[in-house]
Write a protein that binds this DNA or RNA. Structure first.
Lengths: 227, 227
DNA sequence: CGGCATCCGTGACGATACTG
DNA sequence: CAGTATCGTCACGGATGCCG
């Protein structure tokens, strides 16, 4: 009958961090979460944006994540008859873990190896913690030579580790948003330094390395017009 | 000559989170960091507090961490001629990652399996984020039936993900501190609920589930005497 | 074409034994 | 005490095949 559930490997420690690592400590799992934080994605898109993962491991991880309540499969209504994977609230709650990792790992981006894959929206996580508070929920397009992505800011300051930021929708996404409140134009290295924290938005604007477009209060706040 | 360095496996992605996982994503690494956040430890002590890790994996991880600048080996002066492992500043910078993981994983502590190992200081990480600001640096002993540990609070509020908290010394430790500013006495389940955030210190005191001993301002702040 | 399942070679992991 | 040596097992990565 039961075809021998291989029983997920556990640290068997009564420790909150160990429990978290039991759930998401496997190779690739947190990077799949990173992709799904950009919104619902199809299997093939995930596979394309996770270069190096093998098909069976990706399928297995998605199955594990579904079994643990981190993600769900959903079938889109026709004619777009595709199945997409989507984070649950529990899965989206991993955002603070990913931002903490991104903040710690940002200095390592100083050396860009020729073998490194790159997607524009991978710049989103370090940036989320570094943008000044907009005071109001806002969607910001970020335009790099390498591509365009967008951020969804809650308005009440940078994203810290204090739980999910807003409703539960995607926190960032690939490509431009439908209706953005502001648009940032900068080069990849400026974006890297912003994410690392060695440069802030006001400095970058003053140095001519960053253009902030937009008319609303969010764009003004990003420019530093606090009055 | 060079016996072919097997070259650490990398995700090869130009992404801050992926870079961090390249460094600390291997099994056991973050739990070793958790142990070393309690201060310098000997190999045998690490092995004792990481039940399940095999000796060669532990040795290998410590070597990797040393090579990556996360930890250092240090030989204690005689007569205590033992070698201890100690986090570097870079390694200690992983505290926000571990607190984010602990916060996310805390709800999973609701079911305590009979196979789970337990060390008192494993309660420290979830607690660090949940104690009210003491206003002043303080050392707090926490007394459970299961054992005693202590926390070193910076004073400026709970530990968020905004970088290292204070100087760089241990953030918590096993057993009582030499000179504690306050002493908390509670049972394990109360400690778990505090860490989970479903209960706060003031509530626990009022419910008679937590005693806060001590005379100084830190103890008063923990009691909620904000005046 | 999207979503896997299968097969296979390699390397990482876990337990035990052993050594300076 | 602080690891190294050895070995069986399993997870991973890559390629291919199947099936709606």
């Amino acid at each position: 009958m039961s075809p021998r559930q291989p029983r997920r490997r556990s640290y068997d420690q009564y420790c909150a961090s160990a429990r978290a690592l039991d759930a998401v400590g496997d190779r690739w799992t947190l990077l799949i979460v990173r992709e799904l934080l950009a919104g619902p994605r199809r299997y093939t898109d995930l596979h394309a944006d996770l270069p190096g993962v093998s098909t069976d491991v990706l399928a297995g991880r998605l199955k594990d994540m579904e079994a643990q309540g981190l993600a769900t499969r959903r079938k889109l209504p026709p004619p777009a008859a595709a199945t997409v994977y989507e984070l649950t609230a529990r899965g989206a709650g991993l955002l603070p873990v990913l931002t903490a990792l991104a903040e710690w790992g940002a200095p390592d981006l100083a050396d860009r190896r020729p073998t490194d894959a790159l997607r524009a929206h991978w710049y989103a996580l370090p940036l989320l913690r570094r943008l000044p508070p907009t005071g109001v929920p806002a969607v910001v397009d970020v335009v790099l030579d390498e591509g365009v992505f967008h951020l969804r800011l809650a308005g009440d300051g940078p994203v810290h580790g204090d739980g999910p930021v807003h409703g539960g929708g995607p926190v960032y996404g690939d490509g431009p948003a439908e209706a953005a409140d502001a648009r940032l134009v900068l080069d990849a290295d400026t974006c890297r330094e912003l994410g690392e924290g060695t440069l802030d938005v006001a400095q970058a604007v003053r140095a001519g390395r960053l253009e902030v477009h937009g008319e609303g209060p969010a764009a003004a706040a990003l420019r530093g017009e606090t009055g």
